[in-house]
């Protein structure tokens, strides 16, 4: 199946793109994130990222389906 990945803020710089598609057979978000982090190692710098599937925030145990859009945001502390 195909999953659309959207990278926000500095993650777009880390990935070199704001969006990419990944072909995969895995169904859990956690496994998908492992693939993404191996592909773009600087994403591992944040101990925790904020993740939404189809614009709804979810935990890493969530399941993904064909055609889903996974948005990855950095946590931010400044103000």
């Amino acid at each position: 199946m195909k999953v659309h990945i959207k990278y926000y803020a500095k993650y777009a710089d880390y990935a070199g793109t704001r969006m990419e598609d990944i072909e995969t057979d895995i169904i859990t978000l956690r496994d998908l994130l492992n693939i993404v982090r191996e592909r773009h190692p600087k994403l591992k710098e944040d101990r925790r990222s904020l993740i939404a599937i189809n614009d709804k925030f979810v935990g890493e145990e969530a399941q993904i389906s064909d055609g889903a859009t996974v948005s990855i945001f950095p946590p931010v502390s400044g103000g």
């Binding site: 926000y8 803020a9 500095k10 925790r48 904020l50 925030f57 950095p74 931010v76 400044g78």
Partner: peptide, 23 residues
């Protein structure tokens, strides 16, 4: 806020999600 971007969210206890709801 960080760099060139930031977040805003209204949190109403008991009605909306809170910070812990989304990790």
């Amino acid at each position: 806020v960080e760099g060139t971007f930031g977040y805003v969210k209204t949190i109403i206890p008991g009605k909306t999600s809170c910070l812990s709801c989304f990790g």
